[in-house]
Design a protein around this nucleic acid. Structure first.
Lengths: 241, 241
DNA sequence: GCAATAGTGTCTATCAGACAATATTGA
DNA sequence: TCAATATTGTCTGATAGACACTATTGC
């Protein structure tokens, strides 16, 4: 029976059942040349679904604290990593009657790209950075495996035609470092000459001093000219299959 | 409180306030060589927000009738147009404390591409097909203007590198008709030779008889070889600005 | 000098855009 | 035949990939 409460009679005060609403965040970073993401352990307390299982960081909207969906995602990210200015993009929403045993629920998932935290920097105790390849094989809580798969696919496909992997680096970074990030995300090597042309022609990099990384030769440092939006390249790296 | 007594473990109370959850659908079609979308009038009943204003078709999740978000979107589409097999894609979610005067609310928006309804075919009485350009200038209910802008942008940008505009045509269609759809969506003319190469090389078209449209010359008819997903072209039509 | 890393020159292949040409059909 | 539309041939230009080459720096 498809009733539409929005057009219900005047005195019906929105009393029909409401789904649960959560926000989950797939936080990506690169550690030791491997894509990682943050996982948190579900609490073991009685009454909690999926106790002890690893899950994406997330939770219910706090209607008093969160002004909007992205503020909620930012709050989760800050609570777990202390990071306040990530690249954050809405990934999509998953909602159904069966995805959470507590009832009809909807989650809006975001994905974030952050530079690797400096070694020793605090992160939440119940959280750990898991290699992406391994997380994809784990039995995650709820439908978080599907969300993670969508996030990885989005990241890979956008790396084919945008500057997204640059958000995985602390600034300033060098072109060889940036190429590393692209190669890690795309899982294939890039041609140096072609890569440099592509990045420099796109005009999203601002020069930012000289950087010594390898102790062999100084390299030009760069930062993002405009962190608010990634650059879009005129063509994909190569044809989609 | 949505608590299903049959679900196995006793869950924590979940007594905190929940946002309202709706689904809205941007239904696109092309009528007389113009992109249109379906709008519905908000009811005038007292207690209803935005009375009398035009809005995207949508409404609350029905936790009993809707198995998941896309089923809810399909239900809205069917109720308003009778169409059951559209191209349907999730666009994104908008949620904040202020977008609906009734409280913290989240909507998940979908966009649908449908062939123009045969003239005379029934459609809901409170609905009308509005030219997209005009709808973008209207004062729509809630934040539906922003949702519509995102839908138009998504459609335009995907038309640069996928076969999406094909879903706006009834089958079988001809290559000149398909080119028309691309030109209408992209708002610029395409080169015929280049267009035909692109479409035929992509391999998403299956031949489907001869079609007479202009009463001048028969043309090859085509249908989509696989309606379940659009084709992705190896390059964009032209560089993004 | 040598090793290692940063950065360049240049050729080829692919595909979009331009534009002109040819093919088919009804009147 | 002509007008209108469908379809093709072919040239040009932009850019990704390949690959060899040069430049810089510490030892």
């Amino acid at each position: 029976m498809a009733h539409d409460p929005r057009s219900a009679p005047p005195h019906a005060p929105l009393s029909f059942p409401r789904p649960l609403v959560t926000v989950d965040v797939v936080m990506f970073t690169v550690i030791e040349r491997q894509l990682h993401l943050l996982l948190v352990r579900r609490p073991d307390a009685p009454g909690e679904p999926q106790p002890g299982r690893w899950a994406l960081p997330g939770g219910f909207i706090d209607v008093d604290a969160d002004a909007d969906l992205s503020a909620c995602a930012r709050r989760k990210l800050r609570d777990k990593t202390g990071i306040t200015t990530p690249y954050l993009e809405q990934l999509g929403s998953w909602g159904s009657c069966g995805r959470d045993p507590r009832g009809w629920s909807v989650t809006t998932a975001y994905f974030a790209l952050v530079p690797a935290l400096p070694a020793g920097q605090a992160q939440a105790a119940d959280a750990r950075w898991e290699p992406c390849a391994s997380a994809l094989r784990m039995r995650l809580a709820f439908d978080h495996r599907a969300i993670l798969e969508a996030a990885v696919e989005r990241l890979r496909s956008k790396a084919e035609y945008t500057s997204l992997p640059a958000y995985l680096l602390p600034e300033p970074f060098t072109l060889p470092q940036l190429q590393d990030m692209f190669e890690i995300v795309l899982e294939r090597e890039q041609n140096e000459a072609s890569f440099r042309r592509r990045m420099l022609d796109a005009g999203f990099l601002a020069e930012d001093g000289q950087v010594v990384i390898s102790r062999v030769r100084k390299a030009q440092g760069y930062r993002l000219a405009d962190r608010s939006r990634p650059a879009v390249f005129p063509r994909t790296f190569r044809a989609a299959e």
